[in-house]
């Protein structure tokens, strides 16, 4: 069904009305960020699969894994995964709340949205402190 709906007509389709037709708000930005972090975290899941395999394979394979995590690109990825995971965690809780009918009013959707951003910043930074700065 969806194969033909987007072809045929030139009309803009939600949510692809971004531009002159659509003003982004906190709620829609957090919604797409939930998806974005979810997709990004799939790469993190595969990284963890590699970590498990490297651990089973032996010392030198595991050393390669740890070395990659410690490289500049690896560090950037870890930072991204940590913040993405906490965002997906807290915003997921927000979604679960909506699923049971809690916090659906516009005002609470906004305040929970701001809460998610603050909690993500705090928990993410605390986690990175545990990883990189403790010791």
């Amino acid at each position: 069904m969806s194969t033909t709906s987007s072809q045929g007509s030139k009309r803009p389709l939600s949510p692809f009305m971004i531009g002159p037709y659509y003003r982004p708000q906190l709620t829609s930005i957090l919604s797409i960020t939930h998806r974005g972090t979810g997709v990004f975290l799939c790469a993190g899941a595969l990284l963890l699969v590699w970590g498990c395999v490297a651990l089973a394979a032996g010392q030198s394979d595991f050393a390669t894994f740890v070395e990659c995590l410690g490289s500049p690109l690896g560090t950037l990825a870890v930072i991204g995964f940590v913040y993405s995971l906490w965002f997906h965690f807290f915003n997921g809780l927000r979604h679960l709340g909506w699923d049971v009918g809690r916090g659906l009013e516009l005002a609470s959707a906004y305040s929970s949205g701001y809460a998610v951003m603050i909690l993500t910043l705090l928990a993410g930074s605390a986690t990175l402190w545990l990883i990189y700065l403790r010791s």
């Binding site: 194969t3 072809q7 998806r35 799939c42 899941a45 699969v49 498990c52």
Partner: peptide
């Protein structure tokens, strides 16, 4: 790991179904 991978493929499925129209 197994629940993460299961949850990930469920989520990716929705993203693919929403955005891949071919």
């Amino acid at each position: 790991m197994i629940i993460v991978l299961y949850h990930a493929q469920l989520g990716l499925q929705v993203v693919i179904e929403d955005y891949l129209h071919v």
